[in-house]
């Protein structure tokens, strides 16, 4: 009974911390870093839907980030669309792309799925790199001005941070709701027992495809925010390293958990942008941290920390019964 309450209070503390962050941190630089974390977290959350709950490991998730970013910048700066229509078309078209990619990639599972998503991602990268009349080639596209929704000035880092935070909140709510829904539950079923689910009369392919498209939609939202944040996009956004980095966030934070990808995103973004200022070889540090996570918390930071906390709480000094149960649990795990 105790644990849901503590989870709730922990989330509340976290929420309050996120909201007051701009008052505690006065430097615009760190507020911008926080915005970046939130954007990366949305992308990681959407990938987590596939990896954690669907058991579909994708190496092409940068596709949605990049395509939505390219589309929104192209539509607003060159094709003459307004911000709102540009954003809606970008998200709609990117979700449409996810429908096609899902149709193609879900013909296979496991390693085959991974390779197809990788290939599709690389095709998009190649297109962005080569079709320079449209994408600016490796020079990228720039010149986007941040919009002014409801009279908010998004050029202000704090306002922008809250703007992104709202999207992160909605994303978290949607993910949580999705997991409780019948579709989310059956997605986990197809992950664990695809054949049994099939035998039970579920349309495994359709469940996976719908989840794939839903993930693509949130990838597109992340891409849109990415475009607003950077006001620039280049083929780097579509590159394999971006996909791999996102996957790393999910795995490091904890697959199949709601908060894991957020923690993972924070870890990677902070290492990449803040720690790298002090440590030249930050990539080695990232590698070391990842190895340590795999060694001591193979399930990821969030579930790992939960396990450690539980073990501490259930230590013999506080509760003998719980001690026994924890031993039993550990045995059975």
């Amino acid at each position: 009974m105790r644990s849901p309450v503590s989870t709730l209070s922990l989330s509340l503390i976290g929420l309050v911390a996120l909201l007051v962050m701009p008052w505690l941190v006065t430097s615009e630089y760190y507020i911008n870093i926080a915005s970046q974390i939130a954007i990366a977290a949305i992308l990681a959350l959407s990938l987590n839907l596939l990896v954690g709950w669907g058991g579909m490991i994708s190496l092409g998730h940068a596709a949605y980030l990049g395509v939505a970013a390219y589309l929104s910048i192209y539509l607003t700066t060159q094709a003459g669309f307004g911000h709102l229509t540009g954003a809606l078309i970008a998200i709609g078209a990117t979700t449409g792309l996810a429908m096609i990619f899902g149709y193609l990639a879900l013909r296979a599972s496991g390693l085959g799925f991974l390779m197809i998503t990788l290939a599709l991602g690389q095709i998009l990268w190649g297109v962005a790199y080569r079709w320079s009349s449209l994408t600016g080639g490796d020079n990228g596209l720039g010149g986007l001005k941040r919009p002014h929704p409801f009279g908010l000035n998004l050029m202000d880092p704090t306002t922008f941070y809250y703007f992104v935070l709202v999207f992160l909140g909605i994303a978290l709510l949607c993910m949580a709701r999705f997991m409780q829904s019948g579709l989310g539950q059956s997605l986990q079923g197809t992950r664990d027992q695809p054949r049994r689910m099939h035998a039970l009369g579920y349309n495994v392919w359709l469940i996976q495809w719908l989840s794939f498209v839903f993930a693509g939609f949130w990838g597109a939202v992340a891409g849109l925010l990415y475009a607003y944040y950077n006001q620039f996009v280049s083929p780097q956004a579509l590159h394999l390293t971006t996909s791999a980095e996102t996957l790393l966030m999910v795995i490091a934070g904890g697959t199949g958990t709601l908060l894991g990808p957020v923690v993972g995103a924070a870890l990677v973004v902070i290492l990449k942008n803040v720690v790298s200022a002090y440590i030249t070889r930050w990539l080695i540090l990232l590698g070391v941290i990842f190895v340590v996570i795999v060694l001591f918390m193979p399930e990821g930071l969030v579930p790992g920390a939960r396990r450690v906390l539980r073990a501490l709480k259930n230590s013999p000094h506080t509760d003998k019964d719980a001690d026994v149960s924890s031993i039993v649990r550990d045995r059975t795990q």
Binding site: S27, E28, Y29, Y30, F232, S234, Q236, N273, S276, A277
Partner: peptide
């Protein structure tokens, strides 16, 4: 001195770091 890692998005963050922080 700041290391941009040769990536446009990192360069953006680094230039903010240099100017703002």
């Amino acid at each position: 001195t700041a290391d941009t890692a040769g990536q446009p998005a990192v360069a953006k963050t680094k230039v903010q770091e240099l100017v703002e922080r």
